[in-house]
Amino acid sequence: MIIDQDKKNMRDTDVLFALILMVASIALIIYSLVISFEAMRVTDCAFYIAPGLPTLLIGFFLLVSAMILLVTARRQGGDLRWLSPKKFLVKFKSKEFWNTVIVFGYLFLYMIVLWERTPLLGIHIPFWLATFIFLNLMMLTFKATKFLNIIIISGITTFLVDFFFRTLARIPLP
């Protein structure tokens, strides 16, 4: 039987994800029971209105679904042998992987580090500066256009966004 590589990769990850889901749903079931009995003890309520009932049901169905996923993926040739350092090295070398990491990294920098009072830098960076830096970094890294154009585009965008949201829509941007 011929299975194409993409599908094989998909089933491999499915196996891993199914296992993670199963562990998570078992933890969820235990958690639901704990909070339900805690709530029943404190507020003296019946089980049918305990806060853990719906999460218990979700946990149960999630467990069943994860099992089905595991069985299906196994039948279609998924396994966990791909979790070897060698295969990871190949992945690390691919450009796509690094691009993904960089985009997430910039988003993290913009959304978490530069926004509001930054816990890491300890100083307050105004919104427009953070936006300006983010736009420049993103466009420079991916070589969107000429350097000067990038600065101009970033500047105009920053100004427009700041003007629209802060001045027109009266949103208190940091």
């Binding site: 500066l129 300006f132 350097f147 600065i151």
Partner: peptide
């Protein structure tokens, strides 16, 4: 050259805020 230019821009910007 690029890096120098970037640095200059940011320095100007920071000065402006102050």
């Amino acid at each position: 050259k690029l890096r120098k230019k970037t640095l200059m821009t940011f320095l100007t910007v920071i000065l402006l805020i102050c």
